[in-house]
C-alpha cells in the first residue's frame, strides 16, 4: 500500500493497482472460510463459469499439502500453468494476512508467465472465523461458510462473516438434513453485515455458482471502469 510516495525502482512492492508498465493489473479476489465449507469447490465452479470470458488464474494456500491445487488440477478447471500452490508452514492466516510476501510473488509470477490476467482468485486454506485477507494482497474478499457448520455461525460473527465483501452460505441443499434454519441465518447475516451482500448457494443446484460469478463480474467491471 502506497501512501502517495513514489517508487523509482522496478516492480511493485505490494498492492499497487498498476503494473510496472502502467497498465491496470488483474483484480485479485480472496476466498477464505472454515475447513470443508466448499471454498475449493466454489473456486472450481467459478473457473468453469468464467474461463471462457476472462483470463484468470488461481493461487491456493494449503495448510500442509497441495491438496487444493491438486483438486483443481484434477478437475482440469484451468490449464496447470494457471494454478499455483503457496506453502504456508501450517499457518494459512499468516500467508494471507500477516506476511503476504509469498502470495504476492505467486500472483506476480502468474502475471509474468501466463498474463496479462483479468482476475486472480487467491484461496486460503481452511482456517477459523477470524481469518481475513490483507488489503495488500486482495482487492475484495469472499468468506465461505456452510449450513452444516451450524446455523449460528452468522450470529457469532467474527471478522470474516462481518467484514467480507461477500458472504457465501454454501450447501443450502443440506439444510433440511442438518436442521439449519436458512431464514434465521439470513436474518443474522443481515444484522451482522448491514448492506454487505450475502449469497446462499448450492453448487449441486441448477443455479450453481451463478450469483457469486455475477458478483465477481460486477467487481471486475468496477475495477476496470
Amino acid at each position: 500500500m502506497h501512501l502517495g510516495h513514489h517508487h523509482d525502482g522496478p516492480a511493485a512492492v505490494s498492492a499497487d493497482a498498476h503494473r510496472p508498465d502502467g497498465t491496470r493489473r488483474a483484480l485479485r479476489i480472496g476466498l477464505g472460510g472454515p475447513v470443508g465449507t466448499g471454498k475449493t469447490a466454489t473456486v472450481a465452479a467459478l473457473c468453469r463459469a468464467l474461463r471462457q470470458e476472462l483470463s484468470l488464474a488461481v493461487v491456493t494456500n494449503d495448510i500442509y499439502t497441495r491438496e487444493d491445487a491438486r483438486f483443481l488440477l484434477r478437475e482440469a478447471v484451468l490449464p496447470p500453468e494457471r494454478i499455483t500452490a503457496v506453502e504456508t508452514g501450517a499457518c494459512p492466516h499468516t500467508a494471507i494476512r500477516d506476511d503476504i510476501s509469498a502470495n504476492l510473488e505467486a500472483v506476480e509470477d502468474l502475471e509474468d508467465t501466463v498474463g496479462p490476467l483479468d482476475l486472480v482468485l487467491v484461496e486460503s486454506g481452511g482456517d477459523n472465523l477470524t481469518a481475513t485477507f490483507s488489503r495488500g494482497l486482495v482487492d475484495a474478499q469472499v468468506f465461505v461458510i456452510d449450513v452444516a457448520g451450524g446455523d449460528d455461525i452468522p450470529r457469532k460473527g467474527g471478522p470474516g462473516v462481518t467484514t467480507a465483501d461477500l458472504l457465501v452460505v454454501n450447501k443450502t441443499d443440506l439444510a433440511p438434513h442438518v436442521g439449519s434454519d436458512l431464514e434465521r441465518m439470513a436474518a443474522d447475516a443481515r444484522a451482522q453485515r448491514g448492506d454487505l451482500p450475502v449469497v446462499f448457494q448450492s453448487l449441486r443446484g441448477e443455479a450453481g455458482v451463478r450469483d457469486v460469478a455475477d458478483w465477481v463480474r460486477a467487481r471486475l467491471a468496477a475495477w476496470t471502469a
Binding site: G9, P10, S101, L104, E105
Partner: peptide, 22 residues
C-alpha cells in the same frame, strides 16, 4: 531473498535494494 527484498524495500527504500531487484 526475493520475499525479503520486497519487505525491505517497503521499509527502507534504497537504490542498492532496487538494484538487487533489477
Amino acid at each position: 531473498g526475493r520475499q525479503l527484498v520486497r519487505a525491505a524495500r517497503a521499509a527502507w527504500p534504497h537504490q542498492r535494494l532496487d538494484a538487487l531487484v533489477r
